[in-house]
Write a protein that binds this DNA or RNA. Structure first.
Lengths: 202, 202
DNA sequence: GCAGTTATGGATCGATCGGTAAGGAATTGG
DNA sequence: CCAATTCCTTACCGATCGATCCATAACTGC
């Protein structure tokens, strides 16, 4: 942890590590992992390479920290949706959260996870696996939440929780792609409303 | 064009340009535009750099030719769907075509357009714009097709053709992402069936 | 003030990027 | 056999990649 047991020794850091990480997150969000060069990153962070390596380790660790910040911030809708009382509300909060997150004013459009994970050379393989696991976890959590809804009688015994979870994830992913392609928030809200109009879909 | 007006003069080409382009398409499909290095490409094509430049121009032109091949092959479902007699069948052919194209045995999963266009540095900007225009054209064609369906009485006067087109595109994009993330064909067919269960969605 | 510690700035590392120059190899027409 | 044309092989170009070295600056404890 970053807890200091006594007064700091040595030259104090000349930049705000939190703001630097925020700006690094935005660069990764826009250009992906391999598409974001260290020059892009350090310029946006307002520091030079050496300071970045001293503070964050290397490019991969910087991404992991930026990803954690993203998951706890713009992508927090995933965890927040799970505590909704009904499966329908879970789906609604998740999808509308995906729309809002993908169209945040002042942020890159779309989803950091998708932008950083779809493609790349050999360098980004570890990152792609990290993000793939993360998306799979989100899908698993949705599946378990819908299983609970079946047990609670909220959903019919005939519904397939795993299919429902994949259905929701598919639309959320599509929303992210559409947002990255320029679709605005209002249009995507209409799309999500249309998808939620029949619930459950099976 | 490649039409020869008389007998070829000089050393004959030592490779099959069509097969080389096919293999280049697969590499772009898997790694995207910037993620596919010339080393990756030429190794898969079975030729060296010089031969590639002589035959295809440069990396960007190679991608454009690979993209044309992709649009006419695995992504032909887009154009094929438009000639279906009803809007419902258009949507069904489009979405099931997206599923099949994204889960073709022996090919990379997902969609070449998305993999190559979501992210990247400055180099791939022209390619991203090309693909963005292409996806926008697909959406426009779907919109016009649904407008025709409204005129023909196939769809209600109250339906919004543009919204329907974006709805279909969103699900197709989500399918591509899911496929790239490992979802198999059977699962995605179920997702598409679920989405098509209520039609039109608004 | 001095030793110890940490951060910064600038130069630079080897590897790889897309792209190319030069010369030999293979073919056709004379 | 020879000239002309085209393709292929090898080596290389400048630029950029992520990462690091080293000298200097700024701070604390003694």
């Amino acid at each position: 942890m970053t807890i200091r047991r006594s007064a700091p020794v040595g030259r104090p850091r000349g930049f705000d590590a939190d703001k630097a990480l925020e700006n690094a997150m935005r660069v990764f969000w826009e250009h992906g992992y391999e598409g974001a060069s260290l020059t892009d990153l350090t310029e946006a962070m307002g520091i030079n390479r050496t300071s970045m390596y001293a503070a964050f380790g290397n490019k991969e660790e910087l991404f992991r920290k930026a990803w954690a910040r993203y998951a706890a911030g713009p992508a927090a809708y995933g965890a927040e949706s799970l505590v909704e009382p009904t499966a329908r509300q879970v789906a609604a909060v998740f999808l509308h959260g995906a729309v809002r997150s993908a169209t945040l004013p002042g942020y890159p459009t779309g989803c950091l996870s998708l932008r950083a994970s779809l493609i790349g050379g050999d360098d980004g393989q570890a990152i792609r696996e990290l993000l793939a696991v993360s998306r799979q976890e989100t899908r698993t959590q949705l599946t378990k939440r819908f299983e609970r809804a079946v047990e609670e009688g909220d959903l019919s015994r005939e519904t397939d929780p795993a299919l429902l979870a994949r259905f929701i994830m598919t639309i959320a992913n599509g929303v992210a792609v559409q947002a990255a392609g320029g679709a605005d928030r209002a249009d995507l809200e209409l799309v999500v409303d249309a998808a939620l109009r029949n619930w459950p879909p099976v």
